[in-house]
Amino acid sequence: MKNSTLTLLFIYLSSLGCASEETSNNDENSNNSANKTTLKMVDSNATIETKALYSQLWNIQTKGTMFGHHDDLLYGTNWMAQAGGSDIKDVCGDFPAVFSVDFAEIMDDRSSNSPLNSDRERVIKEARERGEVIIANCHLNNPLTGGDSWDNSNNTVAQQILIDGSPVNIKFKSWLDKLAFFMQNLKDNEGKLIPVIFRPFHEHTQSWSWWGSSATTQTEFINLWKYTLNYLNNEKSVHNLIFAISPQLDQLGSKESLLYRWPGDDYVDFIGMDSYHGTNTSAFSSNLRTLGLLSKEKHKPCGVTETGLETIMVNGVAYDNYWTNEISIPLTGKNVSMVVMWRNKFELGGTHYYAPFKGHSSSSNFKLLFDTPHMLFSKDLPDMYTMAENITVE
């Protein structure tokens, strides 16, 4: 239970270092609760449910942080595409509040033979049926070279996408067309379109991708971002996407770090941050504070869209207190809507995992995180698809 004595003791101890910040935030939130808030989305024609989700993403930041896990419902360390599967649920008894998924194989040239695409659609619908939040990244292959997302060998990819009628432009649009078809047919049990937070071109601050800092100029990246959003909204009439930008910030950063290659307030709905900070707790905590302040300034919800420590080890030694030390405590008192761990790869005996699974040595510590009131899982969520009180979304 989340009100256990152990939990209360943990919260007391973990909040000592940020009591003044929490008091300030609580006073501010109390004052704001009497005021009506108007939010503005990129897509003014977004569906009612999409606008409702957007309002709840803003609203929940004052209540706590939703815990998420990439591909959690699709596969785990020891299983693949099993109905009801979830490494997180196996450990704590509840599903993550946020389900993260990759849209690339739905979109690019792998779409015709991807064995998991039907399961991707299935688990998205299952997450929506439980009232959870869906967020999608996109490791698209390189449309010019035919390589993967990490193929940054040619710095003209974005340029050629932006040349109307070029072979690369035609290919890229065909990929967006497949995403549009998928989103326009992604419906819940009542026949309503399922909203998805979509973060194309994630970690654009890094050099690894064909859209990243080593292969595009600032102008090219911004134009590519705007082109993609305009095409989906205006040309293909997709109205159930919330657009999230997600720079990567592992070390101590600043507001300017989060605004690197910012495409403009009219082209961003959600301010994400990918953070592979490892054990740099002070940097993570400071960056979370900066993210929350930027969210308030821009009047846009925010969240940690990727994080984690591979194998949950430091220098070859299991870090069994990771969940309280590096995730729960830094998030205490911060106005951040979500924190999403990277995936647990299906790999028997493998080491590519970022969340606990049944039998993992950090499981008991994870349950402490689960028990803290400010960490929200599936059963803790309000109705995320009904408009939040006193909030209007344009």
Rank of each mutant, 00 (worst) to 15 (best):
377 F>P: 07
1 M>H: 13
83 A>V: 11
348 L>R: 12
282 S>M: 09
134 I>N: 05
44 S>I: 04
341 M>D: 00
109 D>T: 08
248 Q>H: 05
56 Q>Y: 09
140 L>F: 09
253 G>L: 07
14 S>K: 00
143 P>M: 00
113 N>G: 08
66 M>G: 03
101 V>D: 14
233 N>M: 15
317 V>L: 10
112 S>L: 12
370 F>G: 06
61 Q>G: 05
133 V>L: 01
321 N>P: 07
74 L>V: 01
33 S>I: 07
120 R>G: 12
335 N>P: 06
93 G>L: 01
387 M>F: 04
118 S>Y: 07
234 N>V: 14
319 Y>M: 05
101 V>F: 14
332 T>A: 15
42 V>P: 04
29 N>F: 13
140 L>R: 02
265 D>P: 06
130 R>T: 12
6 L>I: 09
334 K>N: 14
303 G>M: 03
239 H>N: 15
9 L>Q: 15
351 T>R: 14
201 F>W: 07
9 L>W: 13
362 S>K: 01
270 F>D: 10
381 L>S: 01
310 E>W: 03
82 Q>Y: 08
238 V>L: 02
70 H>S: 10
196 V>Q: 05
53 L>P: 02
349 G>Y: 01
251 Q>N: 14
159 Q>L: 12
308 G>H: 05
15 S>D: 07
366 F>I: 00
159 Q>W: 09
387 M>R: 11
336 V>S: 15
20 S>R: 15
199 R>M: 01
214 S>Q: 12
44 S>R: 09
251 Q>L: 10
164 D>C: 03
279 T>E: 13
380 D>V: 03
246 S>Y: 04
230 N>Q: 08
85 G>Q: 02
119 D>H: 13
172 F>D: 10
186 L>H: 03
275 S>K: 00
299 H>G: 14
216 T>F: 05
157 V>S: 05
259 L>Q: 06
160 Q>P: 08
364 S>W: 08
227 Y>T: 03
118 S>L: 11
332 T>M: 14
12 Y>F: 13
69 H>C: 01
101 V>C: 13
320 D>M: 03
42 V>M: 11
223 N>Q: 14
30 S>Q: 11
269 D>Q: 08
21 E>F: 09
241 L>K: 03
210 W>K: 06
158 A>K: 04
336 V>I: 15
102 D>A: 08
207 S>V: 07
286 S>M: 11
142 N>E: 09
157 V>D: 02
312 I>Y: 01
58 W>G: 10
133 V>D: 05
265 D>N: 15
176 L>V: 00
175 W>Q: 06
197 I>A: 06
21 E>L: 14
291 L>G: 12
126 E>H: 09
18 C>F: 08
198 F>E: 08
116 L>M: 13
56 Q>G: 09
76 G>E: 09
292 G>F: 00
193 L>A: 12
375 M>R: 14
